[in-house]
């Protein structure tokens, strides 16, 4: 009874000041955030960018809903998903914007290696969390012109747990050769490009560009993963 009273009366905050943390991580919330960052993108327009994104989103969902009865089916399904998302995401533009300060100073080979590593890491991450996208309702809230393209605003809410907080995911797209490409995803106000830029700059200024490549490679070779 006392424990409950403490919980009711006193916010956790004061009790936790002296503790390293209320260290949770996690799963659904985090998986959702990650999944939504990459898993809900789609195809054409009316508003055009939004329609494009929605079409791609529906395509991803339809692929995910298709039964995969054996490992071969699963492999084929993942390959289709990878193709759809690879076609949707502009990794080079993402890399260029994230390495804004260094992009001009590195060699074409380094750029190519960097884009390759980034795309493989991103694809691996979304592969892990794609299934969970089916657990979300996506509401398209419209599109607005952004500084570097068109921003399609969406809100994702868990279908399985109504108590999970809603997640705002904005996609920034540009139209190239008649096709739309996503190059930035803003999750609850956090721009992927801005975040990557900040992290990349920190590492490059401290240890150099090769150290950044080293970290990406190490991550790619590691199976040790919480997310």
């Amino acid at each position: 009874m006392n424990r409950t009273a403490q919980l009711r009366v006193e916010p956790l905050e004061p009790n936790m000041k002296n503790h390293p943390a209320f260290r949770l991580l996690f799963a659904t919330a985090l998986a959702c955030l990650c999944a939504l960052s990459w898993g809900t993108m789609s195809a054409h327009a009316q508003p055009r960018a939004q329609a494009f994104l929605k079409e791609r989103h529906d395509l991803v969902r339809s692929i995910l809903k298709a039964p995969a009865k054996n490992p071969l089916d699963l492999q084929a399904r993942n390959a289709r998903l990878t193709a759809v998302l690879h076609d949707l995401l502009d990794y080079e533009e993402l890399s260029k914007r994230a390495l804004q300060d260094q992009w001009g100073t590195i060699s074409p080979a380094q750029r190519s290696e960097f884009v390759g590593l980034l795309s493989r890491l991103v694809e691996r991450n979304y592969q892990k969390s794609l299934e969970s996208t089916l657990d979300f309702k996506i509401r398209y809230a419209g599109e607005v012109p952004g500084q570097n393209g068109v921003v399609v605003q969406t809100l994702a809410r868990s279908k399985t747990n109504g108590r999970a907080p809603e997640v705002a995911v904005d996609y920034t797209l540009v139209e190239r050769s008649g096709s739309w490409k996503v190059f930035d995803v803003t999750t609850d106000g956090v721009s992927l490009v801005d975040n990557y830029r900040s992290q990349f700059n920190r590492i490059i200024h401290k240890d150099g560009f090769d150290a950044l490549l080293g970290r990406l490679k190490k991550r790619l070779s590691s199976d040790n993963d919480l997310l």
């Binding site: 390293p20 943390a21 209320f22 260290r23 949770l24 991580l25 996690f26 919330a29 985090l30 955030l33 990650c34 960052s37 980034l118 890491l121 991103v122 991450n125 999750t187 609850d188 956090v190 992927l192 975040n195 990557y196 992290q199 990349f200 590492i203 970290r215 990406l216 190490k218 991550r219 790619l220 590691s222 919480l226 997310l227």
Partner: peptide, 24 residues
């Protein structure tokens, strides 16, 4: 939390940094 998760996925921060973000 989102920043930490995105950074962790690329191996840019440690588990400890991730847990600190999520904990907060």
């Amino acid at each position: 939390f989102v920043t930490a998760a995105q950074s962790y996925q690329l191996g840019l921060i440690t588990v400890r940094e991730l847990i600190e973000g999520v904990s907060a």
